[in-house]
Design a protein around this nucleic acid. Structure first.
Lengths: 256, 256
DNA sequence: CCTTGACCCTCACGCGACGTGAGGCCTGAT
DNA sequence: ATCAGGCCTCACGTCGCGTGAGGGTCAAGG
């Protein structure tokens, strides 16, 4: 039973610096339970177990004094700590999932040509608005709620590579509209409608099943809603209106 | 379009303090793009978008100067940042899962009466031992690899409540052995064997299907392996041997 | 036996990312 | 006119270590 470890050894297997262990020793958070004749710190199993507890709590963001209070609490044994840490970790995992979801939402919005409001962008950080009015706002904003939910469901499983590919497609779509407009191609012409149709299919492939009627109403909002307009017009002034016209013409041609 | 926000408002929706925004302004990480006549900071959409990027990177553990370098990089646009952040978040999620798995392993080991070695306890923190010899060691240590894997598989889905219940059962089992020993109950008596059988069924219910032969070899290791012995004997000296005897008697009585 | 290189020790100052007042101006509602 | 509540700028304090400086210790090899 090799019970004894030097600070360097402990630091190595714990993934911290020797200085950190010195510090913990100084403040009494994790003391080396012994010293050699030469004054070298000697860590034993119990010390390392304590270190493990401390590091786990640290990873969860606790301050060192809080950690000391936690693990010195005589009402909680080692297993109790493991259970609590497990719970906190699972919670942290949930927060991370929430952040990923928020990023997905932002990516999705951008790909569809929409700017999120500040509240929406920062949603995941502060702001636990009780959720009532908040949800209402969101619903009113996104209009087609079913479509949006479907979209959320699908994008949840996209990987980084998927998103990158999606971005490329979205960008090239916007560029297609922009260059058509610059070249004087009529929005209602065959070419314009082809671009619109391509856009509709792009949406259907990546987000939700977008029929011509839905596409038309989305197109309308490109000029009606400033948050869309800003995005398109920052690429090329007047582009939002141009895209809307192409979409409307295409929808009409398809009987919607 | 309410484009303008005061520091207090931004702080509120972002979940940070005003002081933090002042700090970011001072060091130039996130500047308020304007001031009122009275000198009040005025934040616009672009500032808040930048803040969102910064906070996400901060949540991932980057230093403020690194963050500045990242988001000032002209080769990466907003979507690029979102993609990178998504990737990093997913990675962090993986680390958290790993820590939960490590805790489960520790809980499992404790419930079975085993002390983990320091290396095992701290496994998740530093120590990326390439995994070769490491895995070998682990296999040699746990013996019944199939059983252990099964056990890992099952415990992965346990909740905190499950673990708490498991702990209670495990504790009461050990206490049962301890009090029987104190009361002079023979390890090979009917009562002793009943406790052993109960222990076997406890293992089978929570960890892996433990037949009498496996149970016997586990019992043997309670005295042969110091890491088991320590746990039992810390409850009551000689308990490890007592438990082993009861288990062996019970296994023999069941034809193993 | 002596040297060399890898560890170990104790000061002690420095730093990043804010926290925490102190002292004073701005502004909207009563 | 006043008064609460929010904003401003210093400026020092704190926490969790990083980073030398200066100096012993220990196992291995010449």
């Amino acid at each position: 039973m090799a019970e004894d470890y030097t600070v360097g050894r402990v630091a190595e297997i714990a993934g911290v610096t020797v200085r950190t262990l010195h510090h913990y020793d100084e403040i009494g958070l994790v003391r080396a339970s012994g010293r050699t004749a030469a004054g070298y710190r000697v860590y034993e199993l119990a010390d390392i177990e304590r270190l493990q507890q401390a590091l786990t709590y640290r990873a969860l963001g606790f301050g060192l004094d809080e950690i000391a209070a936690l693990i010195d609490n005589p009402d909680v044994d080692a297993v109790g700590h493991l259970l609590r840490q497990r719970e906190l970790l699972v919670e942290r995992g949930g927060q991370i999932s929430a952040m990923v979801a928020a990023i997905d939402k932002a990516l999705e919005a951008r790909a569809m040509g929409m700017q999120l409001t500040p509240e929406e962008q920062l949603e995941v950080f502060g702001t636990d608005k009780v959720g009532g009015e908040w949800a209402e706002e969101a619903e009113a904003r996104w209009g087609e709620t079913d479509a949006f939910r479907e979209s959320q469901r699908r994008t949840a499983s996209y990987t980084k590579a998927d998103w990158a590919r999606l971005k490329e497609e979205a960008d090239s779509g916007v560029q297609g509209f922009a260059s058509a407009m610059r070249d004087g191609v009529g929005a209602g012409s065959e070419a314009g409608m082809a671009l619109a149709e391509q856009h509709r299919q792009f949406l259907s492939r990546w987000f939700y099943d977008c029929d011509h009627a839905m596409h038309r109403s989305l197109g309308e909002s490109y000029v009606a809603d400033g948050r869309f307009t800003a995005t398109f017009d920052s690429v090329e002034p007047g582009l939002a209106a141009y895209v809307r016209d192409a979409i409307v013409a295409n929808a009409t041609a398809h009987g919607a």
